[in-house]
Write a protein that binds this DNA or RNA. Structure first.
Lengths: 104, 104
DNA sequence: TTGTCATATTGACGTTTATCTATGTGTTAT
DNA sequence: ATAACACATAGATAAACGTCAATATGACAA
């Protein structure tokens, strides 16, 4: 995963509405109208947020008649998690500044 | 970790210079002047980026005379990783849309 | 104490972002 | 065909952001 792809995903998750939308999608595919009900934003604002989440690849949209069903793109999300996980806090235990850190 | 703390960290990582600074700090503590040399930005811009990384808690600063030594706050970084990891792409394997996804 | 060095702060700038209202587009129901 | 519905797009606005040049601060050296 390229740096620019990662930063795009981070920027997408750097808004509390969008982060919470992603958390909501963890429960499974959701209709746009369900998402709209769950947040105190207007419909165009939600549409804008969903566009950003889709453009960075984290979320997919499945159209069915007039409805849009959004869900997390598991594969993409896993690639992002892997990237973040691999950026270790430190390369070796000696330089680690935490007792709890996994590197020890 | 609160939503607002996570979004602050994501916003901090949502800039390619800052993400690369964090990657660089993976190698261990670095002097501000080392960071400045490694990127094509002016000194005030770097100082601004370091402030953002420190304010979200991801990076620590150790002052020694006129020098600043920056390093990743391992504990904080691990909390962030844990948060991201726990936001699974899906709650159960049946709704998963990827063959590769860890939830299966 | 005066100068130099490393870093931070200030203020300005153009760009991006989050949000809204208004409107457009495509789909279903009457 | 018309109306109602679900969602997207356009345009406006205010706030936040990334960047820089200029300047301030604080530490060490001569």
């Amino acid at each position: 995963m390229k740096i620019e792809e990662v930063t795009a995903i981070c920027r997408a998750l750097g808004d509390s509405n969008r982060l919470q939308i992603v958390q909501m999608l963890t429960q499974g595919e959701k209709c746009a109208c369900n998402i709209l009900d769950a947040f105190e934003i207007t419909q165009p604002t939600m549409s804008h947020h969903m566009k950003i989440l889709c453009e960075c690849g984290l979320v997919k949209c499945r159209k069915e008649g007039k409805w849009c069903h959004y869900s997390i793109d598991c594969e993409r999300f896993r690639e992002f998690k892997d990237f973040i996980t691999e950026v270790s806090c430190c390369d070796n235990a000696e330089m680690c500044n935490s007792e709890e850190c996994g590197c020890k």
